[in-house]
Simulated assay, not measured.
Amino acid sequence: MFPFARKDYFPSNLVENLPLSTPIDKLEFIVFDTETTGFNLAKEDRLIEIGAVKVKGMEVVEESAYQSYINPNRQIPREITELTGIANEQVEKAPDAMQAIQKLTSLANQTSACYVGHYVSFDMHAIKYELKRRNLHWKAPKAIDTLNLIGYIAPSYDMRDLEKYARDFGTRIYQRHSAKGDALTTAYLFVELLHICHDRGIKTWGDLLMVGEIL
């Protein structure tokens, strides 16, 4: 367990006060993805899987990859099992959401600049609502969305499909609708987008926040 500074505060465990002038090739990121029982995160739906991997020096650190099923303490709908392959039997003895979230933020280890995901606001909300149920608040962790970077590079794109983008940008594709697989796919897409952004003049942490941060 993290030693919380306040009863209602859950640490993001990211680097604090990172200079905006830091070159992007010197940064570390946590790319992550979640699977849930559905899309009504504020009410009945819960996390059932988290997957994450580090990107450092504009390269994917595959050996850092983390995955955990999560016991949602409710039944997983049949359509979600069909989509993700995650059945009730797989999560019955899995850690609870709090343990998995702590592992995710531990991976950041106060060395990562921010969290990254594809349509990352959904994943951030999944975590924030799990923490809220425990009367905890995830205090404004910085996050970059690959969709925002794609919008900067190619504004005409209007779809959200991760696999389509991975194919279009020529990056690796791992198992779909698996949190670990989608995190790895997103990480390789993110690295390609970083290189393209760098070639277009996005050289620093401050530059990257301007084009990629979710608000």
Rank of each mutant, 00 (worst) to 15 (best):
M1S: 13
F2Q: 05
F2Y: 11
P3T: 13
A5G: 10
Y9G: 07
F10V: 04
S12G: 11
N13S: 03
L14G: 03
L14W: 02
L18S: 01
P19G: 04
L20K: 03
P23L: 03
I24R: 08
L27G: 11
T34R: 08
T34F: 05
E35Q: 06
T36E: 01
T37G: 12
F39W: 03
F39N: 02
L41C: 01
K43H: 13
K43Q: 12
E44D: 13
R46M: 00
R46L: 02
I48P: 00
G51M: 04
V53P: 10
K54D: 00
K56A: 10
Q67H: 05
S68T: 07
I70K: 02
N71K: 05
P72E: 12
R74T: 09
Q75R: 15
I76E: 14
I76N: 14
P77Q: 02
P77Y: 09
R78Q: 15
E79I: 14
E79G: 08
I80D: 00
E82S: 11
E82H: 12
L83T: 07
L83H: 00
I86Y: 06
A87N: 12
N88T: 12
Q90P: 01
E92N: 10
K93Q: 10
K93R: 13
D96C: 02
A97L: 13
M98A: 10
A100W: 01
I101A: 13
Q102G: 08
L104N: 07
S106D: 08
S106I: 01
A108R: 02
A108D: 04
S112C: 10
A113W: 04
Y115D: 10
G117T: 01
Y119V: 00
V120Q: 03
V120M: 08
S121M: 15
F122A: 04
D123N: 05
D123H: 09
M124Q: 15
I127M: 04
I127D: 04
R134H: 11
R134F: 08
N135R: 08
N135E: 15
L136R: 13
L136S: 03
A140N: 14
A143L: 02
A143W: 07
D145F: 06
D145K: 01
D145L: 05
L147Y: 01
N148P: 07
N148T: 01
L149Q: 11
I150G: 10
G151S: 13
Y152D: 14
Y152R: 11
I153D: 15
S156I: 15
D158S: 14
D158W: 00
D158T: 07
M159N: 09
M159D: 02
R160I: 09
K164A: 15
Y165S: 07
R167N: 09
R167H: 11
G170E: 07
H177D: 00
H177W: 03
S178N: 06
A179Q: 01
G181Y: 02
G181V: 03
A183R: 00
T185H: 05
T185V: 01
T186G: 14
T186M: 00
Y188G: 11
F190T: 11
V191P: 03
E192S: 02
L194V: 01
C197G: 06
G201H: 08
G201L: 14
K203D: 14
K203M: 11
K203L: 04
W205F: 15
G206Y: 00
L208K: 11
L209P: 00
M210E: 14
V211E: 00
E213Q: 10
I214A: 05
I214G: 01
